[in-house]
Design a protein around this nucleic acid. Structure first.
Lengths: 255, 255
DNA sequence: ACAAAAGTGTTACGGATACACCCATGT
DNA sequence: ACATGGGTGTATCCGTAACACTTTTGT
């Protein structure tokens, strides 16, 4: 079946002049469109004690009483989703030192919240390893690989964030968002190991990241520990913004 | 500053029992949260005449009168964003033969729509090259690399969709969504060339895709044209669902 | 026979991994 | 001296790009 005139008016009503009057009332009914609650959530990840952890808070009230949930909450009337999640992380869990924040995805299943229709847009936030934010009592870090019982569809957001981080570690410089300002190569390979879930040889990691221009030597080094060993050189990431350093290696343009 | 009790109640109000009564009224005001209009949009791409094209319709009314816009519209009360955009593409522009549909991103800038607060979630839809949907008069295909004047932030969604397609061509089997059920290797390399924006040698493309198990020979071939030449073998994609066929080649697990 | 288009074989090369070996320090 | 951990050099391997060559058809 082809398009009919009436449907197209739909679009004009939304973005056009017609929407200016009475929009809030005539929308809530049928298929024409509805106003829905919208919340911003964050999958905040940090490497803690050699393990990739996610920040969760424990719900005290139903639904999902006692289950763990992602920090976040309702979108304000005059803010974007990005600034909303930044504000809420700062206010509610005292997380201000995100080195990186990016949008993950939006879930819209009508039944995802049993109480009322709520859309949720999740963000991936990364906290560098040297920061230890003071979080509320009901809030804590949990291994991202071994989640406690989670509320709503929040577990799927966490898995999505983990996947995103793992993928980006291999073709971008996101590492900067996991590491402190300066680090040794064995520390860095520890962060990579925790995030990727498998061993990463420090010696080759160094070459890969230097070849790509992601890291550089600071010139300084840390003294060796009590068991001896050569002092480790200190490195830093050259950029503090996300960059794609290894655009896909296949189907690349001819010379 | 650390968390204070009042803020946390926010979250509970949203997802908890407190929200059951009076939510629609007490939300629209301050920073506590608001109900917003939400629309689903689609960046529908197809290779047409050797060029990557996007489906747009021309706005007849302000705002952005005369500018081109992505198809889509308001989210219905009882549908998810994915089913909403499928419905609207079928109803409004008669596009039913999407081989692939995936979410791109959600934009929430309060000023993105000058008339009223509207969030938009864009999807990437791919139509195979052998289909020619009957679209309304005000709707047409435009080269994705050379967009006409676009309404709202829609141009940024198109660029985002193009980037996504290009990236996924190199590490997934999305090609299946651009190509007809059967194709010759030179046809396929034409689709890749159009989508990637640079030459793709058919001879190597074949080896790459066969090595990865993406395509296989059908056993049949097409007769050569009037200018002669060896008949071309016909291939097909082995899967019709998105698969990651080349997980990132670096920082891979040790043997 | 010749031109045209498809397909195959072979080489070259870029980039990563693996691993042996060398360096700097503490005890 | 020797143990310990960091750093360098080098061999190897994997997969793709490039390109010459062969195959199959039409005129």
């Amino acid at each position: 079946m082809a398009w009919n005139g009436r449907d197209r008016v739909d679009i004009s009503e939304v973005n056009g002049q017609a929407a200016a009057v009475g929009a809030a009332t005539n929308d809530s009914g049928g298929g024409g469109g509805s106003l829905a609650a919208h919340e911003a959530l964050a999958v905040v990840l940090q490497i803690r004690a050699g393990e990739l952890c996610v920040l969760l808070w424990r719900r005290a009230l139903p639904p999902f009483e006692g289950a763990w949930a992602l920090p976040g909450g309702r979108l304000g009337a005059c803010e974007s989703l990005g600034s909303s999640i930044r504000r809420q992380l700062a206010q509610k869990v005292d997380v201000r030192d995100l080195n990186h924040l990016e949008q993950l995805e939006t879930r819209s299943d009508p039944d995802r919240d049993p109480q009322r229709r709520t859309l949720a847009t999740a963000y991936l936030g990364l906290v560098p390893a040297h920061i230890d934010p003071v979080v509320p009592d009901d809030t804590g870090w949990h291994p991202a690989a071994d989640l406690p019982p989670m509320a709503f569809d929040h577990a799927t957001f966490v898995r999505s964030g983990r996947r995103r981080l793992r993928a980006k570690l291999s073709y971008t410089n996101v590492g900067f968002a996991l590491a402190p300002p300066e680090f040794t190569m064995s520390e860095l390979s520890g962060y990579y190991r925790a995030a990727l879930g498998h061993d990463v040889a420090a010696t080759n990691l160094r070459r890969v990241l230097i070849r790509r221009g992601q890291i550089e030597e600071t010139g300084r080094s840390v003294p060796s520990g009590r068991s001896g060993g050569r002092p480790a050189a200190l490195f830093r990431f050259r950029a503090r913004e996300l960059e794609i350093t290894d655009a896909f290696a296949v189907l690349r343009p001819p010379n």
